[in-house]
Amino acid sequence: MGHGGGGQMSAELIQHLFLPAFGAAASSATPSDSHVLTLANGQRLAFSTDTYVVHPLFFPGGNIGELAVYGTVNDLAMSGAVPLALSTGFVLEEGLEMDVLGRIATAMGAAATTAGVQLVTGDTKVVERGHGDGVYINTAGIGLVPEGVDIRPERARPGDVVIVSGEIGLHGIAVLSLREGLEFGTELRSDTAPLNHLVAAMLVVCSDIHVLRDPTRGGLAASLCEIAETAQVGIEYDERSLPVPEAVRAACGFLGLDPIHVANEGKLVAFVAPEHAESVLAAMVATDLGRGAVVIGRVVEEHRGFVVARTRLGSTRIVDRPLGEQLPRIC
């Protein structure tokens, strides 16, 4: 299997294997991180699940437990939902130290409190030694979508302004540096964080946000490509406007990676109508997590389905999602 990197191959697995195999049972599935169900009383419930396979389990700025809570909280928040409750499922490898599991569980409790969600149900399985990477965690969550809020990739439309909530590439490079024993001057910390409070602050000033995405695996590029394809619009951004921290640029320059492909865990990208851009940006900048928010580009009529970047030199190029895992190159 080469389908785990959040790239084109994951998307194709869903499209060509799961959806056909599930058949009618998946007829209302959305190609999205969460699905919004409308209940009989008209209330809308967002539902999402994600499985966390992270190595190493602890990294600068976070750990697998925090990721598992914040990841699902964020998936819910990207539909505008207020997250309510999470389930937690553990697959433990025989021999995992209780102390390690204890630290992970404590981190999950603290993360849930920070995000304002309850951990309400769960499950634990143990597999033989050698059949797991210490611990795998699945979380699923539900949240309520406020009235009048309709946030989904299909709603991106020409003219929309594209805003990123802060510096990109931190999580991916922090984990990669630790995993591969690489150092790039300053220690990088993962940006793992719950985005629901930031989204709530944005919705206060504008309930008509068109699209929200948290660019995790595959980086900002994967999110932008997915939105361009789903909404059949073109997206354009200026490379110079991307907020890339120095250490991430250094690491990417060294490894031959593009920061736009590197994973984030506490950032979002928002698409809003031009008349609301200023107020939404101001609301973001007023929060802790959105302090570094900037406008990076806009939605255009041209090159529908494609993301195009304007380079520092003034030329243009296509931006693709990464194909499978990002591979450091030879020279």
Partner: peptide, 29 residues
């Protein structure tokens, strides 16, 4: 191998396919 080589097509498949079939292929820096 360096990561670059994994997707290079041979006559029938590539190192990624060997890895996906259970071969112990590892990327090193």
């Amino acid at each position: 191998s360096f990561g670059d080589m994994l997707r290079v097509p041979g006559s029938r498949d590539d190192l990624f396919s060997v890895k996906a079939r259970g071969g112990d292929v590892r990327i090193v820096y």
